[in-house]
Design a protein around this nucleic acid. Structure first.
Length: 592
RNA sequence: CGGGGCGUGGCGCAGUCUGGUUAGCGCGCGUGCUUUGGGAGCACGAGGUCCGGGGUUCGAAUCCCCGCGCCCCGACCA
C-alpha cells in the first residue's frame, strides 16, 4: 500500500472531546470516524488492526473446538418474549416493527437465537457438547457512550455459546474458555486480570470478566495481592465485621433538630459515623424496602438486587416513604407494620447504634438489631480499599479497569424457557446447560492502543499492527523511489503487509506520521543510507535503529517479524496485573 | 434520566457578554518556485446554510423562544 493512496488523513492536533489516549490517537491517525453518539466507522487502518485481532480470536476459539457461524442481526421478538428478556431488558435493546407490524429486535446478544437453533438441531446427548461463535455486529442503546471505541452503541463482538449435558462438563469447558481468553489478550499484547463479576441481564450462576487495569477504565475492581482473589466491585465481598461484644443499653430518645444526614447526626451527638445506622430506601414493585447499613458504609445496589431478587431498584421518593409510615431524615423500622427490612452484616455485628426515631427532629440511641427491630441480614455493603479479603483477610486493593471480555455460566434457564432439550443416556428429556462468552473487538483494539502508546503515537505489538512494516523514503530522487519500491516488492514477496510512504513530504512529517500510526517495524530508505548501500531498520518501540545492506533488507525484516511473533508466548504472563493493582498503578498515571 | 459544557471552512479556535462594513486566525488543502533525516520557506489561491426553525430590530454568528446534535460528570449498564 502506498501512503499517498491510503484512505484517511492524519491530524496534528487532538480533536475536541478526546479524553483518553486511544480515542485521541485513533482520531489523529485517521482510523475512525464518528457518525453519531457511540457510532463509528472503522477506516482502513482500524479495519486492518481489528481484522488481525479477529483472526487471533478466531484461532483461539477454534483451538477450543469452537465452530464459527453467523447469526442474524435482526430477530423476531418471539424468542425474546419466550426467554422473558423482551420485558426484563430495558431500552438498551432497540426494537421496531416490520411492515407487517411484527415486533422485531436489533440483536444485542444471541442466547435466545442459539437456544432456538439448539431446539431444532440438538436431540441427543450424542450431539453435545458443542460451542459455536460468531464475530458480528451488535447494537446496544447505551445510555451513555464514551471514550471513543471503549464504550459504544454499535460494535463488533465475538460472542460464543456452549451447550452441555452437565454442570461438570460446563465447568470444565468454562475453564478452557478462560484460558483461551487469557491467551487472546496476551497475543494482543495485553495481560488480563480475571475477576469475578455480576451476571447482570444474562442471569445464571457465575461469571467472570477480563480486565485491563488502567485509570481510563470505568469499572472498579478489588484485588487481594496476597491470595489473588479479584472481583468487580459489583460482587466484591469482604470479611464480616467482628461482632461487638458490648451489652445492649437501653433505648434513649434524643432531640436532633434539623439533623437529617449521617454526618449531621454524628457531629451533633459527638459520635463516629460508624456508630450510627444509615437507612436507605428502595421501591420495588410499589413497595418500600427499608435497607439498613452502618453509617460509615455504602450500599452495593448490585448485591442488594441479588438479595431482593429484582433487577429494578428505584430510590424511593419522599411521598413513598411517608406512605409507608416513615419520616424522611428520621426514619426507623421500629413499629412500622408490614415493612420489608434488609440489614447489612455490619448492622448485625454492631451494638448500640444511633438511628432514627421515626419522629421529626428525634433520633434514638442504643438501637440494636434483633432486640429493637427484625431484618433479613445480608452482605450488601460496598467493598472499599483496605477491607479484609474474604479468603485470607489481607487488605484488598482497589483499581480501575476496562472490561475486555466476559464469560457467563447460564445454567438451564434459557433452554427451559425456549424448550431446548435433549434425550440423555436413560432416554430422559433434559434441558441444555448453556454458557456464553463475549469479547468486544473494538474495545479490545482500544485497549491495545490504551496500553501501547507513547507521546508520539501508537506503538503496535507485531500481532496487531495494521501493516507489518512502514517504508519511509526520504527525498524524491529516482534511485530512492526505485530502492524503496524494490524493498516493498521484496517484502510483499515474503508475505508481509507493507505501507510505503511515497509522499512528497519532509522527513519530519513522514517520521511523525509513522510514529503516530504505530506500525511495528520501520524501514528508512534515504540518500544517506543508499550511499553506503544500506537501509535503516527501526522498531517503533525502540530508541535505536540498525542498518542492513540493501540486498539483505527484505529478508532481514521478514525474519524480524517472525522473531517478534515467535516471542509472543500466550502461556506466559506479560506483566503482573494483580501486583499492578496493589501498587496503585491504575489510580495514578497511565502505563506506557 | 439529573447536572455541566459546546456547536463558526476538513481540524483546532477567536469573534457572542456590549447587535453595525466584504466573519477572522493557526493548521490542513490547491498551484508555482526553493527545500528534504524529525511536523520547511516564499508567493498566489480555493473553501462558510456561523447547528436548524421562528421572533425582536433599520440591521442578528451576536439578543429572545423552540428544537436538534455532540462531549463531559453522575445515574445506569453485557
Amino acid at each position: 500500500m502506498l501512503m499517498s493512496r491510503l484512505f484517511g488523513r492524519t491530524l496534528r492536533e487532538d480533536p475536541t472531546g478526546a479524553t483518553t489516549a486511544s480515542h485521541g490517537l485513533m482520531l489523529r491517525a485517521g482510523m475512525i470516524h464518528q457518525l453519531g453518539a457511540g457510532i463509528y466507522s472503522h477506516l482502513p487502518l482500524a479495519f486492518r488492526a481489528m481484522d488481525r485481532i479477529e483472526s487471533i480470536v478466531a484461532e483461539e476459539m477454534d483451538r477450543v473446538d469452537g465452530q464459527q457461524v453467523a447469526l442474524p442481526v435482526v430477530h423476531p421478538a418471539d424468542v425474546w418474549k419466550q426467554s422473558g428478556r423482551w420485558h426484563s431488558v430495558g431500552p438498551e435493546m432497540a426494537r421496531f416493527t416490520d411492515r407487517e407490524g411484527h415486533d422485531m429486535v436489533l440483536a444485542m446478544t444471541h442466547e435466545e437465537v442459539v437456544a432456538d437453533i439448539a431446539r431444532q438441531h440438538v436431540h441427543s446427548y450424542r450431539d453435545l457438547p458443542f460451542m459455536i461463535y460468531q464475530i458480528h455486529t451488535k447494537f446496544r442503546d447505551e445510555p451513555r457512550s464514551r471514550a471513543g471505541l471503549i464504550r459504544v452503541r454499535e460494535f463488533v463482538m465475538k460472542d460464543a455459546y456452549s451447550c452441555h449435558t452437565s454442570e461438570a462438563d460446563l465447568a470444565e469447558f468454562y475453564e478452557r474458555m478462560k484460558e483461551a481468553y487469557v491467551r487472546i489478550y496476551r497475543r494482543c499484547g495485553l495481560e488480563a486480570l480475571v475477576v469475578r463479576s455480576s451476571t447482570g441481564m444474562m442471569g445464571g450462576s457465575g461469571a467472570h470478566e477480563f480486565m485491563l487495569v488502567t485509570p481510563a477504565g470505568e469499572d472498579t475492581i478489588l484485588v487481594c495481592a496476597s491470595c489473588g482473589e479479584a472481583a468487580n466491585r459489583e460482587v466484591a465481598t469482604c470479611r464480616a465485621p467482628d461482632a461487638d461484644g458490648a451489652k445492649m443499653a437501653d433505648l434513649e430518645e434524643v432531640a436532633t433538630p434539623n439533623q437529617t444526614t449521617i454526618e449531621g447526626v454524628a457531629g451533633f451527638l459527638g459520635v463516629e459515623s460508624r456508630e450510627t445506622l444509615k437507612a436507605v430506601f428502595y421501591t420495588v414493585d410499589d413497595k418500600v424496602v427499608f435497607v439498613a447499613i452502618r453509617g460509615d458504609l455504602e450500599v452495593n445496589e448490585a448485591k442488594l438486587q441479588g438479595v431482593l431478587g429484582t433487577a429494578e431498584l428505584m430510590a424511593s421518593t419522599e411521598a413513598e416513604l411517608r406512605g409507608a409510615g416513615l419520616v424522611p431524615g428520621y426514619a426507623s423500622p421500629m413499629g412500622v407494620e408490614g415493612l420489608q427490612v434488609v440489614a447489612d452484616r455490619s448492622v448485625a455485628a454492631a451494638r448500640n447504634l444511633v438511628g432514627g426515631a421515626n419522629r421529626e427532629g428525634f433520633h434514638l440511641r442504643n438501637v440494636n438489631l434483633g432486640r429493637d427491630f427484625q431484618a433479613e441480614v445480608a452482605d450488601i455493603g460496598l467493598v472499599r480499599t483496605g477491607d479484609a479479603c474474604p479468603d485470607c483477610g489481607e487488605p484488598l486493593h482497589e483499581a480501575r479497569g476496562i472490561e475486555m471480555g466476559n464469560i457467563f455460566q447460564l445454567g438451564t434457564g434459557y433452554a427451559e424457557k425456549l424448550g431446548a432439550t435433549y434425550l440423555d443416556q436413560d432416554g430422559q428429556q433434559q434441558a441444555l446447560i448453556m454458557a456464553s462468552y463475549g469479547i468486544g473487538i473494538g474495545r479490545l483494539f482500544a485497549c491495545v492502543v490504551e496500553r501501547h502508546h507513547d507521546e508520539h503515537g501508537i506503538v503496535f505489538p507485531m500481532s496487531v499492527s495494521p501493516y507489518d512494516v512502514q517504508i519511509v523514503q526520504l527525498g524524491d530522487k529516482e534511485e530512492i523511489e526505485t530502492a524503496a519500491a524494490d524493498l516493498q516488492a521484496g517484502l510483499v514477496a515474503q508475505g508481509l503487509a507493507v505501507l510505503r510512504d511515497d509522499r512528497k513530504e519532509s522527513a519530519g512529517v513522514k517520521f511523525n506520521d509513522a510514529d503516530l500510526l504505530g506500525t511495528t517495524m520501520r524501514a528508512t530508505v534515504s540518500n544517506r543510507g543508499l550511499k553506503n548501500g544500506e537501509i535503516e531498520i527501526k522498531l517503533r518501540g525502540d530508541r535505536e535503529a540498525t542498518t542492513v545492506p540493501v540486498a539483505a533488507a527484505a529478508e532481514r525484516i521478514a525474519a524480524l517479524r517472525t522473531e517478534l511473533l515467535a516471542a509472543i508466548d500466550p502461556e506466559r504472563p506479560l506483566w503482573d496485573a494483580a501486583g499492578e493493582v496493589a501498587a496503585g498503578a491504575a489510580d495514578g498515571e497511565a502505563e506506557g
